[in-house]
Amino acid sequence: MNLGRPHGGFVIISSFAVAMVLTIVPLPDSVARLRPDWVGLTLIFWCLLLPYRVSVGSGFVAGLLLDVLTGTLLGQHALALSLVAYVCVRLHARIRAYPAWQQMLTVLVLLMLHQLVVLWVDRTIGRPGHGFAYWLPSFVGMFLWPLAYRWLLSIQRAFSVQ
């Protein structure tokens, strides 16, 4: 990656917008519970690739918007995504060097971290628990990671975002 002026912020923002649209597209109830965490995947990708541009602050803003979109407590997703972004940026050099399957497992852990924080807040304010099915979106996200990675990478190359 050649160093240069920051470039293509618009592409990053639109990728987050598309992720949010995918998050609220209406699906049948049974499928909706498997819906992967698109915003989380997008955030992880940009944090790995451009840690100096997308990090905790972007995670926080994306999380706030996600809170408003999904009607959760203001700050719930923001806190969770900030944590995800922090871990991602701290370990980006290491994660980038991992083989594909190891990367997938790391992504699984990061997505579960997101869900775990959201669940913690939910339980703290006295909402009921959900059972094992609650964690399925993280697994779906894990299997979608290679696809999402390749797709976002091609976009990043095409628009030479850096």
């Binding site: 998050t23 609220i24 597209v25 209406p26 699906l27 109830d29 909706a32 519970r33 819906r35 979109l69 999904t70 009607g71 959760t72 939910d122 909402r127 959900h130 609650y134």
Partner: peptide, 10 residues
């Protein structure tokens, strides 16, 4: 017609 959090009825 937008989906919200699947565990909240909103």
């Amino acid at each position: 017609s937008v989906d919200m959090d699947p565990y909240r009825h909103q």
